[in-house]
Simulated assay, not measured.
Amino acid sequence: MIKMIDPTIKPPEKECQDRDCPYHGNLSVRGQVLEGRVVSDKMDKTVVVERGYAEGVPKYERYERRSSRILAHNPPCINAQEGDVVKIGECKSLSKQKAFVVIEKKEGE
C-alpha cells in the first residue's frame, strides 16, 4: 500500500497489475502534489494534465493567468479520462518527460 503525503486521498476500488501504480505496484510518490484537469488521454497509460495558476507581474502590480501542461502516468485502476479533475503526485522519472503519476480522480467535478 502507498504511503501518501496527504491522508485525505482515498485509494481506488479496482485492482491492477501495473508495476508503476502507486497503490498496487512499487512506485513511491514524493515531492509535489498538484491538481489539474485532464486535457488529453490519447496515449497509452499517459494523460496530459493542465493546471492554471496566477503569476505576479511586479512592473504592473497585477497578476496574469498562466497554465502548464504536465504528462502523468495513468494507472489502469484509476483510468482518468479527458475532462476529469485529478490529483497528480511527483515520482521518479518514468520516461523523458513523465515524472508524475495520477493518484486520485476527484468525484463530481
Rank of each mutant, 00 (worst) to 15 (best):
74 N>I: 02
92 K>T: 12
58 P>V: 10
13 E>F: 10
48 V>I: 15
106 K>R: 08
32 Q>L: 12
52 G>F: 15
59 K>Y: 12
27 L>G: 00
16 C>F: 08
15 E>Y: 09
7 P>D: 14
63 Y>M: 14
12 P>G: 08
66 R>Q: 12
62 R>V: 09
6 D>R: 09
66 R>V: 10
53 Y>N: 07
23 Y>S: 03
4 M>L: 14
51 R>S: 05
96 K>F: 03
33 V>H: 01
54 A>K: 15
64 E>W: 14
37 R>T: 12
29 V>L: 02
21 C>S: 11
5 I>C: 03
40 S>A: 15
52 G>C: 15
84 D>H: 12
91 C>F: 04
61 E>T: 12
15 E>D: 15
108 G>W: 08
46 T>N: 04
10 K>I: 07
80 A>T: 07
77 C>L: 07
69 R>G: 02
109 E>N: 11
46 T>S: 04
74 N>M: 09
71 L>E: 02
26 N>I: 04
42 K>C: 12
48 V>C: 09
35 E>K: 07
6 D>H: 09
16 C>W: 07
63 Y>R: 13
17 Q>V: 11
28 S>V: 09
19 R>N: 06
99 A>C: 08
53 Y>L: 14
109 E>D: 10
109 E>R: 06
42 K>S: 15
33 V>W: 00
5 I>S: 06
28 S>C: 08
32 Q>V: 12
80 A>E: 02
59 K>D: 10
76 P>G: 11
56 G>R: 13
83 G>K: 11
81 Q>N: 10
88 I>P: 00
77 C>K: 01
24 H>C: 09
39 V>K: 03
23 Y>C: 05
70 I>E: 02
23 Y>R: 05
75 P>S: 04
80 A>H: 06
61 E>F: 13
87 K>M: 13
33 V>E: 05
56 G>T: 08
24 H>L: 03
94 L>R: 01
99 A>N: 13
108 G>N: 12
65 R>W: 15
70 I>L: 05
75 P>E: 02
82 E>N: 03
61 E>V: 09
33 V>M: 07
4 M>N: 05
16 C>N: 09
58 P>M: 12
68 S>L: 11
8 T>D: 10
99 A>T: 07
101 V>D: 02
36 G>D: 01
67 S>I: 07
86 V>N: 02
28 S>E: 12
3 K>S: 05
16 C>Q: 09
60 Y>F: 13
41 D>W: 06
44 D>T: 10
9 I>W: 09
22 P>C: 14
17 Q>E: 13
66 R>H: 12
56 G>K: 14
4 M>T: 03
53 Y>I: 08
62 R>Q: 13
47 V>D: 00
36 G>H: 01
8 T>P: 02
52 G>I: 07
32 Q>C: 11
